[in-house]
Amino acid sequence: MSAGVAQRAAFGRALVELAERYPKMVVLDPDVCPSTQTSLFRAAYPDRFYPMGIAEANAVCVAAGLASCGFVPWVSAFAVFLATRAADQVRVSVAHARQPVKLNGAYGGLPSGRGGATHSAVEDIAVMRTMPNMIVLTPADAAEAGAMVELAMETSAPVYLRTMRCELPDLFGVGWRPDIGRAVELAPGDDVAILSEGMMSARALEAAAILRRDGIAARVLHFGTIKPFDAEAVAKAARECGALVSVENHSRIGGLGSAVCEAAAESDPAVVVRLGFPDCFLESGDDERIFSRYGLDPAGIAAGAREALRRNGSDVSIRRAT
């Protein structure tokens, strides 16, 4: 896996590429366009680009008003400010009013350019997935981020697309077209299942390679959609593997791990180890050091999988030997 394109760049390019096909698409920018790369759209389609100033609440409701008159507005801003500062505006004027507003939550999770506690969006998935009518997408790489911009344009539902600031390894090639609501199996296996979202899925694959060296076959399921949630993929993994580990660039409260537990508990209860950020605010510092501190690197994910196996009573080495 080579280091690929940053999702923000893929997002910005996808907007430009889709602009001709969707003449009612417009972009609203709460003064972060160089950061979220909607500056590409500004350069290409200045008449369809609205600088909104540093006012996310106003931007979200203006988008709802535009949408009610036939436009399809993207509001691209830092995830933390869209999902928490403008949460009520998203809830009432977008989700409740069922307006086709598309939200790009840029700088999802930890990688915020070392912004620390205030800029790390580790609650956004939890907030967005509780909103009725909202689709929540967590692409794994640049190609999937670009493809999901197109998927967002094809649905009349409100969409929250969570993109990463940092460059990410390529998992899916150009032309990849995911299905909304469907988890993707990245690696087969039935000893343990690693269920991951967004940028964690590349790490989950690396963790599966580590486990394979020890004779453990780990299934890797990428959840590029958090809502609607592929509960059936969880139930199947629970039945077939018995031990699950969820991995998310998000708080362990309310995100993918919670969705996995909810789905498993209501179908095929299984041991679940949830990897993610604990109930604390993050700090400034190097992203990878912080990810590693919380076990969100390949070694940490592999350790989480072993913990799930141990708690499930699986003695994989013995089973493999016999």
């Binding site: 709802a64 008003g65 535009l66 949408a67 009432v92």
Partner: peptide, 15 residues
Amino acid sequence: SLGQGLSCGIGMAMA
């Protein structure tokens, strides 16, 4: 939710 309508109306005027 009080405070949101003027923004929505501005979006309509922009449309």
